[in-house]
Design a binder for these strands. Structure first.
Lengths: 208, 208
DNA sequence: TGGTATCGTTATACATTGTATATCTAATTT
DNA sequence: AAATTAGATATACAATGTATAACGATACCA
């Protein structure tokens, strides 16, 4: 135990985190069992044994609970994906690999992911800018690696490339939530990646 | 007056449309004056002289009123943009022209557009698929013209291209709603268009 | 023409969400 | 130990959106 480096997490802060975690646990459990809309804030508060108002202090709207849960989950999974990135040969494969993870990801619980996505989209234009929930870091790394290897053009700010790719990622998620055929979606995804890399314009020297 | 072609709009249907229009009018008026959140459904119902429940029959949620209003507006403006498309020389200019319209468009009332966009995004993944509010038609036409002229590659389904461009359009709108500097945004938009056309990959024969 | 079904409208009641206010309690700071 | 901070609470409230039953005009059919 090194007291240094750990920026003195006070008991208050610990208790707060503890409460939040408890809320997330009981809430997600209810969501999984009864569905999101059939679970009331009242019920969550009761099961977490806190006042309803306290619940609202931690999460201003019901969707925020889901958002926090997903944020935690994706942070875990990101580490893994991040490591595999370096082992892949080029940008295309890195992109495809990352996007395919999205499928497995959404598979866990479509309703939850849908709600989370909607919440984030809403806060993207209203409230402050979209935080990206950590996926931005992943995509930014792909861009960085690509530019470093001379694969990706540098005349467009990385920030823009990331943004564009992130909306592409969302498109894929949304497609997933709509359609059913996985095979079709994978083919579509490959084409979207190609579109991102090669552009929409017809050129003579096209490889394929 | 030709009774044919007009598919027998019954009096009921006329009344319904009339009521809807009245709702939209008084609602939008209140939204402009007091803001969206400061206007209650109660108030709208009262001003439109209908029961609150009737209001909910027409528009299940408050945002739906805004959505319907914007849908009407954009249908008008689309006609105009549609015509100018043919006069432009290439896909790039058509895209830029169309996207620049977005700016003027959002300028009218950012709050309204923001709410409308949020509503549509929400229904995009939850409810049925995203209707596109008519802008898809416009973009589809750009793609069609581009493919016809041999500018746009044909190995990717037009549907995908449209989808990709439409999310790009949304990105632009969202940027607009966040940032302030118009000049920056226009530059950014031009780069996004270039990104869409030429792709993210570095190539030897790049013109610029 | 008259009866019947349909559909928009309405009144009423209700569950739930999210906010505002003031109070209380535990923890941090001095 | 006292003062300050900050989360937790109780209570009350405005507003959203839903459910139910009933009413009335319109459309449809015999």
């Amino acid at each position: 135990m090194e007291p240094r480096d750990v920026p003195v997490e006070s008991r208050t802060e610990r208790k707060k985190k503890e409460t939040q975690q408890k809320i997330i646990n009981v809430a997600m459990d209810s969501f999984q069992r009864q569905g999101f809309n059939n679970t009331t804030m009242e019920q969550i508060a009761e099961e977490a044994d806190i006042a309803r108002k306290t619940l609202y202090n931690h999460f201003p709207v019901k969707e925020a609970i889901v958002d926090e849960y997903v944020k935690g989950l994706s942070q875990e999974s990101n580490h893994e994906v991040f490591r595999t990135l370096q082992d892949l040969p080029d940008t295309r494969s890195r992109l495809q690999n990352t996007l395919e993870k999205v499928y497995e990801w959404v598979e866990i619980n479509p309703e939850i992911i849908g709600i989370c996505l909607g919440y984030r989209l809403k806060n993207m234009y209203q409230g402050a800018g979209y935080s990206g929930g950590g996926s931005q870091t992943l995509i930014a790394e792909i861009i960085r690696l690509g530019q470093q290897a001379g694969e990706i053009r540098q005349d467009i700010p990385a920030k823009l490339l990331v943004k564009q790719l992130d909306t592409l990622r969302m498109t894929v998620v949304m497609d997933w939530l709509h359609d059913t055929s996985r095979i079709e979606l994978r083919k579509e995804m490959a084409k979207l990646v190609d579109l991102f890399l090669n552009g929409a314009m017809l050129r003579e020297g096209r490889s394929k």
